[in-house]
């Protein structure tokens, strides 16, 4: 019944004599840090050296501009509906073109955007896609709202991404 009957269990944290002396352990640690110190570093020195993302990368959303200089977007508003942080605002209007409808105003608030890519996924026209562009910096809230002027990017600049989207559709 007494506790003495229970054999002393060896615990992992029990140290050996050598470990208790501490000095060898110090040198082990020093050797480890020395090894790390001499290893080549993987840091990418950003402004000089830029990260080129793979085609699946989700950078800032852009609107695809067709070769005739017009957007593919028909302002259906599905991206605005699916957008979890409500970053997208679309105001549709009528155009004489065959597609009838176009966005007279298309704004993405990059401060709200969470780069989830839902808009890209939901778009029926392949008109909004997540670009490879990750360089987003603003100095005020107004600048963070990207209108059509900043969002429209010619289609040939996004061929990698569109190719990726089509191969996984």
């Amino acid at each position: 019944m007494s506790e003495k009957n229970i054999p002393a269990k060896k615990r992992i944290k029990d140290l050996t004599l050598l470990e208790k002396v501490y000095v060898p352990e110090i040198f082990k640690g020093l050797a480890l840090t020395l090894k790390t110190m001499l290893r080549p570093k993987f840091t990418m020195e950003y402004p000089e050296e830029k990260f080129i993302p793979p085609a699946s990368y989700r950078g800032r959303p852009i609107l695809v501009m067709e070769k005739n200089g017009e957007e593919r977007c028909v302002a259906c508003g599905l991206c605005a509906r699916v957008c979890p942080p409500l970053a997208i605002e679309v105001q549709a209007s009528e155009t004489e073109n065959e597609k009838e409808r176009y966005p007279v105003r298309f704004e993405i608030n990059m401060l709200r955007c969470i780069f989830c890519g839902f808009c890209e996924e939901v778009c029926p026209e392949e008109a909004i896609i997540m670009s490879m562009d990750y360089e987003l910096a603003f100095t005020n809230r107004e600048d963070a709202i990207y209108g059509k002027d900043k969002l429209l990017v010619p289609v040939n600049q996004s061929s990698d991404k569109i190719g990726f989207l089509r191969s996984y559709r």
């Binding site: 790390t36 110190m37 290893r39 840091t43």
Partner: peptide
Amino acid sequence: KISAWIQDRLGPN
């Protein structure tokens, strides 16, 4: 610098 190297970084540059 040395702390950076030990931690797999580049340090001030």
